[in-house]
Design a protein around this nucleic acid. Structure first.
Lengths: 346, 346
DNA sequence: TTTAGCACTCAAGATTAGCGAGTGCTAACA
DNA sequence: TGTTAGCACTCGCTAATCTTGAGTGCTAAA
C-alpha cells in the first residue's frame, strides 16, 4: 500500500511529465511549494515507487518517468476529474448550436473540435446505421439504362446508389416497383433488407413485373451496406506535434495503423455502453500503439443503440482533461443524436 | 545553346538524382556505359552547366544536383515520354473495370491508385457539379417537424439535406410542393437553383401553399451548394517516405498546406482544359511548396465541363512516369465520366 | 525519520581528427 | 584544340574524446 506522501509524489511526477515530456528529478520536485521534503527524501520515495513498478528511469542517472503501470494507477486512483474551463465549454456548445444538422455533420464536427481542443487525434463512430429503419425508397431513372436508387431511413440518413436497369423494363414497371418496395420495406431495419427482399418482396414483384429476377438482383446488390460504419477522424496529423513522434518512423507506423481502420474499429466499437475505457500502451496489444493511449467513451442513443468516441494520444496524455471532455461531449452527443432517432414516425 | 554532350550529361545527372536523391559526382558518371568521357571532361561540362544555372552544388566540393531551372529545362526539352509497363496499365484498367460506379467512386479510386502507383500524393477534382441539371426533387417527411430534401442530378449525383418543416404545413402541401418543384426545377443547373427558386417558383408556391415564404426560405437555404467542389486525395501520407521530408517540420508545413484545401484548389482548378501543366518548386509561389512540384492534368467531360487531376511530389520527381500516368488516366477518366453525362435525357 | 553531503553515472553537446567523395586547375597528350 | 591524368584542396560525415550538468544511491549526522 502506498503512503500519502508516495501518492503525492507519484501524482506530481506524472502531472509534471505529462506537461513537460521530460524525466522528473528529485531536486526540481523538492523545490515545488506543495512538496516540503528534501531531494534526498524524495529520492528515497522514488526508489520505492520504482521498486513497485510505478516509475521508471530512462537510464541509470536520469530522473523518473511514469511506467505504464504508473499511468494505470494514476488513472485508476489518482485522477481528479478536472472541471472544464468556460472557454472549452462554449466551444463544445458551438457544435450543437445549429439546430438543423445531419447526423454525419454533428459527428464530424465533434471529431474536429475534439481533436482541436486536445491536440490529439480523435475518432468518432456514429450510431450504427444497420438498425435504422427504412422510411422511404425512391428510384429515379436517369436514362434508358441507369437509375438511382435512394433509401431514406427514419433517422434521415440517405443511401444512394446507381444501378443498371434490366432491359425490357418500362417506366410503369419502375413506378409499380417503387410502390411495392415502399409498401413492403418501410420500417425494415437496413440489416434485414437484403434478406427481406428475397423472402417477401420477390413474390410480389414476380406477380407484377416482367424480368423481376434481374431487377431484384440489381436492387438487392446495391443494398449491401458496408461491413462496418465509417469512422470519423479529427486531427489525424496532430500526433506530429507530440515529441514522442519526432521520429518519422514511429510516426509512419502510427499512421499506418490509423489509416487501416480495420484495426481501430473493433477497439472503438467494443466499448459500446460501458462508459469510459482507457487503454494504455501495450494494453493495446499492438506494436505500433505501444506508446499510445486510447481513451474511448460510448454514448447511448434512444432506441438501444450507441456510438463511441475516442481520443488517441501519447501515453503521456492529459488524462484528466481528456476524460472530462469525453464525458461532456458524449453526453451532448447522446442528446443531440437521440433527437434524430426520436422521430414520432407512424 | 547546349551541346549534345551537355544535354546528355544533364539528362543523366537529373535521371540519376531523381532515382537516388544523392548529389551526382563526375567520377560515378564517367563509369556509366552511355558516357564515354573521363571524369575531368565531365567536370568541365558540369562547370559550364552550373554557370548556365542548370545545376547546383550543395556545398563547394559536392556533386551536382539539378537546379529548379534545370528541372524546368528537363521537362521542357529532355523528357522522353516513357511507355508505361503492362503492370501499370492493368492496374489502371482495374479502376474502370467495374461498369457501375458513382462518379465519386471513380474519382476517389483514381486518386488512390494514382498515389499508390507513384508514391506521391495525388489530388483529383471531379467535374464541376454546379452545371449539373436537376433531374428530380424529392421531399421525404421524417416526422412532424423535419424532412429530408433530396435533389438528384442528371449525372446521378445525389444531394440531400435535412430541414425543418415550417409549422402549419400538412402532408398534402408537401406533396403539392414536390410536384411544383419538379415541374419548375427539372433541367435547372444547380448554380441557378437558388435564384430560380425565388424568381419563378416562389410565385407558384404562393398560389398553392400556405406559409409558402417560410417553406421557400427553408428550402432555398439548403440548396446552397458549397463554394467549391471537393478535392479527392490519395496518399496524403506518401510524402513521409520522401527523403526530402525526413525533417518533421518540413513535413508539417507541407501537410498544413495540403489540408488547407483553399490554397490547392485554385492551383488545380486553374488548369482546366490546357493539357498537362508543371509547376516546379518556387513556381508554386508558396514557401511550404518550395521543394514541391505539382503536375496537373485536366480532362474534358462531355458537355463542356472538365475535371483535373494532380500529382504533388518532391521537385525530384519522376516526371516522365508521372506525366505518362496522368495522360493515360485523364483520358480514361474523360471517357468514363463522360458516360455519366451522356444521359439521353433530351 | 529526515536531511546534508559526496562520489558516481550517463546523456547530450562541443570539439577534434580522419576519411572519402568530390571539385578546380594545370600540364601533358592526341 | 579538345581531352585526360594528376594533384592539391574543400567540406560534409562519422567516430572518438572531452566536458558539463542533472540526477542518482549511499552514508553519516541531525
Amino acid at each position: 500500500m502506498l503512503t500519502g506522501r508516495q501518492l503525492l509524489i507519484l501524482q506530481v511526477i506524472i502531472d509534471d511529465f505529462i506537461r513537460s515530456a521530460q524525466p522528473v528529478g528529485s531536486r526540481s520536485l523538492s523545490k515545488k511549494d506543495d512538496i516540503p521534503y528534501s531531494s534526498a527524501t524524495i529520492r528515497n520515495e522514488m526508489y520505492d515507487l520504482e521498486e513497485m513498478g510505478l516509475l521508471e528511469k530512462t537510464h541509470t542517472s536520469s530522473g523518473r518517468i511514469p511506467s505504464e503501470k504508473g499511468y494505470r494507477f494514476y488513472v485508476d486512483h489518482l485522477l481528479s476529474p478536472q472541471a472544464l474551463k468556460k472557454k472549452d465549454m462554449s466551444q463544445i456548445q458551438s457544435i450543437f448550436a445549429d439546430r438543423i444538422l445531419e447526423i454525419e455533420n454533428v459527428v464530424q464536427r465533434s471529431a474536429e473540435i475534439l481533436s482541436q481542443m486536445t491536440n490529439y487525434t480523435s475518432i468518432v463512430l456514429g450510431p450504427d446505421h444497420h438498425e435504422n429503419k427504412v422510411k422511404s425508397v425512391q428510384i429515379i431513372p436517369l436514362n434508358q439504362d441507369s437509375a438511382i436508387a435512394i433509401i431514406v431511413t427514419d433517422t434521415g440518413h440517405v443511401e444512394n446508389k446507381r444501378f443498371t436497369i434490366p432491359p425490357g423494363l418500362n417506366p410503369e414497371d419502375i413506378e409499380r416497383m417503387v410502390k411495392i418496395l415502399n409498401d413492403k420495406l418501410t420500417g425494415t431495419p437496413l440489416v434485414e433488407l437484403h434478406d427481406k427482399m428475397y423472402r417477401e418482396v420477390a413474390l410480389f414483384l414476380k406477380r407484377h413485373i416482367a424480368n423481376y429476377d434481374l431487377m431484384i438482383e440489381a436492387f438487392a446488390q446495391i443494398m449491401n451496406v458496408p461491413v462496418h460504419d465509417k469512422l470519423f477522424f479529427g486531427g489525424k496529423m496532430n500526433m506530429m506535434n507530440q515529441p514522442e513522434f519526432n521520429d518519422i518512423d514511429k510516426l509512419r507506423m502510427l499512421m499506418d495503423v490509423i489509416d487501416k481502420e480495420d484495426y481501430l474499429y473493433p477497439l472503438i466499437k467494443e466499448n459500446s455502453g460501458s462508459g469510459i475505457q482507457i487503454r494504455i500502451g501495450k494494453e493495446n496489444n499492438n506494436e505500433a500503439l505501444k506508446d499510445i493511449s486510447l481513451i474511448t467513451a460510448s454514448f447511448p442513443v434512444i432506441g438501444g443503440q450507441s456510438g463511441s468516441l475516442a481520443i488517441l494520444g501519447p501515453t503521456r496524455m492529459e488524462y484528466s482533461r481528456v476524460i472530462s471532455l469525453l464525458n461532456v461531449i458524449s453526453l451532448d452527443l447522446s442528446k443531440a443524436l437521440s433527437s434524430f432517432y426520436d422521430a414520432d414516425d407512424k
